[in-house]
Write a protein that binds this DNA or RNA. Structure first.
Lengths: 327, 327
DNA sequence: TTGTATGCGTTATCAC
DNA sequence: GTGATAACGCATACAA
């Protein structure tokens, strides 16, 4: 292991005081050019890197951001978080921050973890993936003035805090439009039961587009919990109606896969999230710009950290339709 | 925000010196029972948690572990890392450690990141997922006495460092046996090109099992880079031979999916990794005990950190075959 | 512009 | 068994 090189080491090497080294690092403009060059050269030669722990003790900032990692829930949607995490880590590193992981069983447990993380590691901020109606976690954080950004907007109060989200409605609208343009008229929607902000938003996009083209969505709407079997059930149910649909816009790749199986491949189907499953079976799906979303989350969070803590910011990103063989 | 509660706060509340509080935390046995109880009560009442930054400055240990997060490579295998990360984070937290993420483009870049992380954050150790022949990363870490554990064994020198791995050969052996027991005799292997430790190991499991049952594997072995199209190509190639196989043991779910498509669903197929794709389409696949593997990695790493740095440890875990509809 | 002194919260060394 | 003191590496107010 290389010797530990501190500010003192650099100072001695560059023949200046420790303070001057600190100035070069934190307020370069107040140091004379020639001195600064000498110090910078010493830093490079010695390979000096500031010790975060010491810096944190002094400044109270850890340069650490936290995000929760969830167990792959229903299996099919796990890669979404994966891509988001990678994007976050990359963007954070570019800004001089690091990402720390934590797990939690539920909201109450997560709040307990917030408390621990804050007390022990002095975390600078949190990125929450997803938020519910009346989220207790965001309230807890806000009450304590802990900086945070959510990926997913708060449905009950859009401007309460900063968030980044994908325009879900635009995604399903795009899928619906594509189906209409390729000749379909009876286009069904296989979604989640009403009540989830994201699901309702995606339903809206389908419904509005249908109406915009003077197509009647009545009776073409089904809702079920996420899952392949549920998607198949919904599709079968729709196919047995008097005037059955010729295409399905689905709220997730899981439901889409089910619909695809039920339809025997003879109907057009679109999914949502562009998961590996969609890529594997050639399912046309709405793709979220996850790396971009992650980067914007980091941007917003760091903006909160660095700049004035005044006001919140919202970012709405556009998804894109990845056309494959099923639509 | 609650007031900052330090050792001094606790000491004042419990009417003892700061040092006594520290003793209660680090060497409880040398403190008188009654005093210890009083201090512990104060800690609980005040909700005191040790400040990691300060502790780290003194002890040189950050209680931080790092792991690399990779961009979902070929799409289909992303969830494996996801599950592993969750398991790591969970196990680490239980032992009082936290997991930090980093990204890297290649080995050289990763080593640079090691250096930065070590210098800036005083990381306690690394978990590397996967290791190649003559891995420069493990050499770099070993040379500097940085504790690390790999998930995946070093193929060139099995006992050079501590690792946790899954018995790949046992996995394909199990799949092959299952196919033999259900009546198949011509069982092909769709693998990766020779040279990758993992791929060769999985091929061995198939080959050995065939021979154990007096079945001739000659001519039933194909190798291709990972991918659905490649799997389909291999399967088609095998199916046009004079005595075509009736079943395919595949080295990955991607290749298995391709084989499945090429065989038109009329042949038995098994995959490897039990990815969401396998779950979605009902593909029989070998499942790795990822949460367990992650926990063992953490165990080994912390053992290195706490205990004597003498000797290395190896853990080989058994995979299990998840039987679905394709075999 | 540069140098000096001080404290962040913790633990280790030493007297008591 | 307990309490004072120093030190970890850094950044800031202040004096030179």
């Amino acid at each position: 292991m290389a010797e530990k090189v501190t500010i003192a080491t650099v100072a001695a090497y560059a023949q200046v005081s420790r303070q001057t080294v600190s100035n070069v690092l934190n307020s370069p403009h107040i140091v004379r050019d020639e001195t600064r060059r000498r110090v910078e050269e010493a830093i490079a030669t010695l390979g000096y890197r500031a010790n975060q722990a010491a810096r944190q003790m002094r400044t109270g900032r850890s340069h650490l951001l936290a995000v929760r990692i969830e167990p792959t829930r229903d299996g099919i949607n796990g890669s979404v978080l994966d891509r988001f995490l990678h994007g976050m880590t990359f963007a954070a590193a570019a800004a001089g921050y690091r990402v720390m992981l934590y797990t939690a069983d539920d909201d109450r447990d997560e709040i307990k973890t917030f408390d621990n993380l804050l007390a022990s590691y002095d975390l600078d901020g949190f990125v929450l993936t997803g938020t519910d109606h009346g989220d207790v976690r965001t309230r807890w954080l806000a009450e304590r003035d802990v900086p945070f950004v959510t990926f997913g907007r708060p449905w009950d109060a859009p401007e309460r805090h900063s968030w980044v989200d994908v325009d879900n409605a635009a995604g399903t609208a795009q899928a619906t439009r594509r189906l209409i343009e390729t000749g379909h008229r009876r286009i069904a929607f296989v979604g989640w039961p009403a009540g989830s902000g994201v699901g309702d938003d995606r339903r809206d996009g389908w419904q509005r587009t249908m109406k915009a083209y003077d197509l009647d969505p009545t009776g073409l709407d089904r809702g079920a919990p996420d899952g392949i079997a549920q998607g198949a059930d919904c599709a079968r149910d729709l196919l047995t109606t008097p005037d059955p649909p010729t295409a399905f816009v689905c709220v997730s790749d899981s439901l889409a896969l089910g619909a695809l199986q039920a339809a025997g491949g003879r109907k057009a189907v679109t999914g949502f999230d562009d998961t590996p499953v969609a890529q594997a079976i050639g399912l046309t799906s709405v793709s979220q710009p996850l790396a971009d979303a992650a980067a914007r989350c980091i941007d917003l969070l760091i903006h909160h950290l660095d700049g004035a803590p005044t006001g919140t910011h919202q970012v709405l990103l556009q998804p894109s339709l990845v056309v494959r063989t099923t639509a």
